[in-house]
Design a protein around this nucleic acid. Structure first.
Lengths: 142, 142
DNA sequence: TTTGTTGTAATCTTTTTGATTACATCGTTA
DNA sequence: TAACGATGTAATCAAAAAGATTACAACAAA
């Protein structure tokens, strides 16, 4: 009943690239060492972030860089980029009985509420940008 | 990355009890037939709902009934009653590297945002009561 | 005491996530 | 152009979680 760690891994990945790409070649191994997951997990994350137009990854020579203004990337954008999921956060039981008046209408009465709840969560994620996070990070480091 | 179907099953269960307990003995088998899941799943759901003070279940003779005003039960209450989860909706990667300035602070900069997002979702669920759902249901049936 | 039901444990299957291995391919550079 | 260090990507594995299912003791009422 959880949202994948892919999301927090992706945010972590972006922050590592931002923090080190000026001074170091930021490879999947380098990022993996900070996040402490398998490098292949990072490569897959980078593929998603690249597809979303947030980073550039150099095949062959290696190294990732950020290609979109961090002020234009919200947490929601990252979330959507890496956490595909079919769109619905709530998992509905599959086969309510259509022969029962409750089973027949349970979707009709619940779906809107579930969608609203999910939208509320997503809207909250839209409020914070990656740029905000880098500022927070800088202040913690300072 | 999903929220368990336990939640929708529980809402469905409460609505079935509400709709039929006047005219029928509502057993776990009866509810299971409407939700179309295994009766044991319903019994576990009923145990959670009973623990939350929403229903009464008669051991032995059988049958469930609602013991709390449906206007005082929000979707959030049901959600909390049946979806234990340790409290956090987001799954954070376990071991960010403390030797890295990003890994060391990633929790500090992200946790508040994740908590806010979860709270936004939960607050939305607090807006609708089970009584509202029964009214919606009645209008669909009518 | 028989019957129908709940409470609850145990097991199994499926699904999902992430770890891991493997390797072809690509860019750079020596 | 050969060697080297990376990435892209597939395939496999293992662990975790959710439900389904089986089983049965306890219980309440007829």
């Amino acid at each position: 009943m959880k949202i994948t760690s892919r999301f927090t891994v992706a945010v972590h990945t972006l922050l590592v690239i931002y923090n080190f790409s000026q001074t170091t070649k930021v490879t999947s191994d380098f990022i993996a060492a900070s996040v402490q997951v398998n490098p292949v997990v990072i490569r897959r994350t980078l593929l998603s972030l690249k597809a979303a137009g947030m980073v550039d990854v150099k095949a062959g020579s290696g190294g990732a860089s950020i290609v979109k203004d961090l002020g234009d990337i919200t947490l929601y954008d990252v979330y959507k980029a890496v956490d595909s999921m079919d769109g619905d956060m709530f998992h509905f039981h599959e086969n309510p009985n259509p022969a029962c008046p409750v089973g027949r209408n349970i979707h009709a009465v619940l779906d809107a509420h579930l969608a609203d709840a999910q939208a509320a969560m997503e809207n909250e994620l839209k409020k914070g940008t990656l740029l905000d996070l880098t500022k927070d990070l800088a202040s913690k480091q300072g």
